[in-house]
């Protein structure tokens, strides 16, 4: 069954996929903060929080209205930017540096240390969308 992005099903499947991704697990050692991924729309923002901790996804939370949601790290971008990153057309950290993805909360110097983990998240996300 096809999975849409963004959707609750996508968030659930991504969390599962990350827990199967050994490269993610190794690269994310030391990461201990939930991340809110917010997809900005013209009227409202949806999103999901992944509870990421030491290489494991401990859970997810889908948000129909993510406009005022909080997490230790908040990454926000329009849909097309997220799709560019997931498809591999855009490097996630380059998108951050170019402010295509906004780091609304959290430390860039910390998130930059986990570039490889970020790349593995995008690979897992792509797999979820491709495999349905």
């Amino acid at each position: 069954m096809a999975v849409d992005f963004p959707s609750e099903e996508f968030a659930r499947r991504l969390c599962e996929e990350l827990n199967k991704n050994e490269r993610y697990r190794r690269a994310a050692r030391g990461w201990r903060w939930p991340i809110l991924f917010r997809v900005e729309g013209p009227q409202a923002s949806v999103g999901f929080i992944l509870d990421l901790h030491e290489g494991e996804c401990r859970g997810y939370k889908w948000l129909e209205d993510a406009s005022h949601a909080q997490a230790d790290y908040i990454l926000a971008a329009p849909l097309e930017v997220w799709l560019d990153v997931i498809s591999g057309k855009a490097h996630p950290m380059k998108a951050l540096l170019a402010r295509r993805i906004k780091l609304e909360k959290g430390s860039y110097s910390t998130i930059a240390r986990y570039t490889i983990a970020a790349l593995e998240i995008t690979k897992s996300a792509k797999k979820v969308l491709e495999e349905g």
Binding site: L97, A112, R113, I116, L119
Partner: peptide
């Protein structure tokens, strides 16, 4: 260290 961690690819 930045290169080893993969961070430097972005710049």
């Amino acid at each position: 260290v930045h290169v080893w961690r993969g961070e430097a690819e972005a710049v």
